Simulated scan of single mutants.
Amino acid sequence: MLYAGVEVTWAAAGVTVPWKEHASYAPAVQFLLAALSLLAGCACLAGTRTLAKPGRVVVATALITALLVFVVGTNGLPIYFVTLVTLSGIESATGLAQVLLNTAGAALLLLVGLSYRRRLRGDCPRCGRPHAGASDGPLAHPAPSRAPRRTRISVYLLMCGLLPWAAAKCIWTLGGNALGVAGDDWQRTTSASASGPSKAAASVGIDVTVLAAMVGIFLLLGLLYVWGQVFPRWTLFLSGRRVPRLLPLIPAWLTGIPLAMYGAVLIIMSPLIAVGVLPEIKPSPPFTTSSGITWMVAFGGLAFAGLGIGLIVAARSYAARTRPVCAGVTATQRPE
Rank of each mutant, 00 (worst) to 15 (best):
V297L: 05
G41I: 12
G122F: 01
T65F: 13
L101S: 08
F237C: 11
T173S: 02
A315R: 00
I171L: 02
A11P: 03
A200G: 04
L109H: 01
A252D: 11
V297A: 01
G306I: 00
P248R: 08
R316A: 10
T322Y: 00
V59Y: 05
L67Q: 11
G133S: 02
S145L: 08
V329S: 00
T103A: 12
T16S: 12
I64E: 05
G216D: 10
L111C: 12
S37V: 09
R56T: 10
W227Y: 12
V85D: 05
G328P: 00
A104C: 08
L39I: 15
T48W: 10
I312P: 03
R188W: 05
T16W: 06
L36M: 15
V8N: 06
R150A: 15
T209D: 13
S193R: 09
R121W: 05
A201P: 09
T103N: 09
V265R: 13
S37F: 07
N177H: 07
L174K: 07
H131N: 01
S115A: 12
T190D: 05
V277T: 15
G256K: 14
L67Y: 07
Y3H: 15
R149I: 10
G310W: 02
V215G: 15
Y318W: 02
A66C: 07
W295M: 13
I268A: 14
L139G: 00
Q98I: 08
S191G: 09
T94V: 04
L266K: 14
G55W: 07
P244R: 08
T16A: 12
V112L: 08
Y318K: 02
T288P: 02
Y225P: 06
S135Y: 15
L101V: 14
V265H: 13
L111D: 12
A202P: 13
V85I: 10
K53E: 15
R49I: 07
T86M: 11
W19I: 09
I267F: 10
K199G: 01
L77I: 01
L254G: 11
M159L: 14
R56I: 08
G256L: 09
V72S: 11
A34Q: 07
L67M: 10
A104R: 08
P130D: 06
S193Y: 14
R233T: 11
F287E: 04
